[in-house]
Write a protein that binds this DNA or RNA. Structure first.
Lengths: 227, 227
DNA sequence: GTCTATATGACGATAGAC
DNA sequence: GTCTATCGTCATATAGAC
C-alpha cells in the first residue's frame, strides 16, 4: 500500500531475474532431455544451488511447467510478430496462409520440447493456469481476427463460419506438427516428410474457403470500399 | 533345438498368460493415470507380487511401454476391422473416407491413453522397437493400399500421388485427434469441439482428391451442395 | 528473506538367497 | 520364478543458519 510508487525495488528485481534464470535453465534442460526430462534437482545443480531453494521461486514442478508454458506461447507469439496483419497485403489467400502457416510450423519443429508442452498434454497433473493460458488464447483470437478480416475483404466465402475456419486451421497445423514431431523429430522443417505437405494442405484449405470467384485486385478494391 | 516340436509347453504358456496379465493391468493403470502415470510398483501391487518379479517378463519400464505400443496398434487395427475394404462399396469417396475416419478418430478419442502412446512421443527414452512398430506400419500400408484401390477405381484423381494422399490423410486425422485430446480431452466423440470438424475436413479432403469426372452429374451436385 | 542441511517416501532397477 | 535387501534418484517438506 505504501511503497507502490517505486516500480521495482532491488529485491523484487533480483527475484524476477532469478525467476528468469530458472526458466532459462529449465528450458535448456527440457530441450536436451524432453519435457518429461525436466528435473528440479538438475536445474538446481546447474544453477549451483540446492533443490529446496528453487521452491522459493516456484511452488512446485508443475508451477515451473506453468511458467514454461506461458513463456513458450510468448516466444511463439513474438516469433510470429506482425505477420498476421502483414499477410493481409499478400496477393492471394493461399500466399497469405502459407506464410503464417510456415512461420508457425517452422517454430514448432525448431522447438520440439516447447511444442510438446504447448500442443500436447504430456505432463501428468499439469494443467496450465489461467494466467499461463493467456498468451495461448491471444494467439488463437489473433488467428480468428485475421480470418475475420480476410472474410471482410472478400478473400474468404461470406457464408463460411469464422469459428469453423479457425478451428480447421488449427487442426491442420496441429496435424502437421504432431505427425512431424512424433514420426521424424530430427528432420528439419525444410526436409521434413510432413512439413513438406504443408503447402499442399494450405492450398487445399485455401481453395475450400476462398470466396467462390477469385477476386481480381480491382474487384477486391471495390469490395473493400463498399464497407 | 530339441524341444521345438512341442508348440507350447506349460511353462511357456503360463509365461505368456502372465505377460498378458501384466499388459492388462498396465493398460488399466495408464487409462486411469495417463501415460506417465504408469508405474512398475503399482502394477506389481495390483498383481499381488513384488516389483522385481516383473523384470522376469519385461526388462524395463520402456519394454512395458513397448508391449503397450504394439498392443494398442493391434487393438486399433482390430477395431478398424474390415472397414477399409468394405468402404470401397460406398456411394462416394466422401462417404467412404468419413466412415473410416470416424472409426479411427472415434477409437482414438475413446482411448486417450493409448492414443498418447501411439500418436505422440510422451515417454522420455522410449522408442518403439521394430517388432512393436509392425502393426503401426501395417495400419499405414493398409491405408495406402485402400487409397491405391480407390485410385484404380477412378475415385481419386489419376495424377494424385498415393503417398501424398496417404500422408495428408494421416495429418488430417492426427490433427483432429491431437487437438481434441489436448484441448478438450473429456468431450465425447459425438460432441467434441474438434471431432465435429471431421465431416467438414473429410469433405474438403475428398473434394480435393476426387477424380473430376467419374461421378454422375446428380452425385456431383449432391457432393457440391454438402459444403 | 534467502539459503543450506536434512529427511521422507516413491520410483526404476539390480544382486543374490531360496 | 519369486522373494528380500539394497542402491541411486527423484519431488517435496521442514528446520534452522545467516
Amino acid at each position: 500500500m505504501e511503497t507502490e510508487t517505486v516500480p521495482l525495488d532491488r529485491r523484487q528485481r533480483r527475484r524476477l531475474e532469478t525467476i528468469e534464470e530458472v526458466l532459462d535453465v529449465a528450458a535448456d534442460l527440457m530441450r536436451e532431455q524432453g519435457v518429461a526430462g525436466l528435473s528440479i534437482g538438475e536445474v538446481a545443480r546447474r544453477m549451483g544451488i540446492r533443490p529446496p531453494s528453487l521452491y522459493v521461486y516456484f511452488d512446485s514442478k508443475n508451477a515451473l511447467y506453468d511458467g514454461l508454458f506461458a513463456r513458450g506461447w510468448r516466444l511463439l507469439n513474438e516469433y510470429m510478430g506482425e505477420s498476421r496483419t502483414q499477410v493481409l497485403d499478400r496477393a492471394t489467400l493461399d500466399d497469405a496462409l502459407l506464410e503464417v502457416g510456415t512461420l508457425f510450423v517452422g517454430w514448432a519443429v525448431a522447438n520440439p520440447a516447447y511444442s510438446q508442452l504447448l500442443f500436447w498434454r504430456p505432463v501428468r497433473g499439469f494443467e496450465p493456469s489461467a494466467d499461463a493460458y493467456e498468451p495461448a488464447v491471444e494467439s488463437l483470437s489473433g488467428a480468428r481476427e485475421t480470418f475475420g478480416e480476410m472474410q471482410r475483404r472478400g478473400w474468404i466465402r461470406a457464408d463460411a463460419s469464422i469459428d469453423e475456419v479457425t478451428r480447421d486451421w488449427t487442426i491442420l497445423l496441429a496435424g502437421v506438427i504432431s505427425q512431424q514431431l512424433s514420426n521424424a523429430p530430427h528432420e528439419s522443417f525444410a526436409k521434413g516428410s510432413f512439413t513438406m505437405a504443408l503447402p499442399r494442405l494450405v492450398g487445399m484449405f485455401a481453395a475450400h474457403y476462398a470466396a467462390p470467384s477469385p477476386l481480381t485486385p480491382r474487384r477486391r478494391a471495390r469490395h473493400a470500399s463498399q464497407r
